[in-house]
């Protein structure tokens, strides 16, 4: 019997935990990532999603594009820490964190957080905490391309 015959297409795919915390160059599908979180548990009854996208203005100046640089290894380590703390501290069922690096066009996806919980309150709280914490402790840097040149962004309001 081949592997294809063993794996039924309608069975939920149980992903490796590594897929729930990723730093990648490629764009992502929100539907696909949402499916990934929902497949983790049937107890999930509330899901909060945060999607960060690239704006064309920053501090009153035009931005043509953004480049994200990350510290490979440490960035993933910090995101795994955020997921673990969110799971422990907010009583949620699952948390997915995904951040892109490399050149990002205006309007394109940058970062995705999906928090799955039994109820909405924990999902909203964990999702907000996770994106705020990501900005504080994750070694990811943003270079904005403007008509006046390139600027490394320091603040993370």
């Amino acid at each position: 019997m081949s592997l294809e015959q063993v794996t039924k297409p309608d069975q939920p795919v149980i992903d490796d935990e590594a897929m729930l915390v990723r730093v990648q160059r490629e764009d992502f599908s929100i539907d696909e990532e949402l499916r990934r979180v929902r497949a983790r548990s049937k107890r999930i009854g509330g899901i909060a999603i945060f999607l960060g996208t690239a704006r064309d203005r920053s501090k009153g100046k035009d931005v043509d594009g953004i480049t994200f640089e990350h510290y490979e290894g440490m960035a993933q380590k910090k995101l795994r820490e955020i997921r673990e703390r969110a799971l422990n501290d907010f009583g949620i069922i699952e948390l997915l964190i995904l951040h892109r690096y490399g050149e990002i066009g205006i309007g394109d996806n940058i970062v995705l957080i999906i928090a799955g919980a039994e109820h909405r309150a924990e999902a909203f709280q964990a999702c907000k905490w996770a994106i705020d914490e990501l900005k504080q402790i994750t070694p990811i840097w943003k270079l904005e391309h403007t008509p006046d040149g390139e600027v490394w962004v320091e603040e993370h309001p």
């Binding site: 960060g52 970062v111 990501l134 900005k135 070694p139 490394w152 962004v153 320091e154 993370h156 309001p157």
Partner: peptide, 16 residues
Amino acid sequence: DEIALLPPFAGGSDGC
């Protein structure tokens, strides 16, 4: 040891 200099982080899209 793996040593690095880390400038201020700016993950995500600021202000969002």
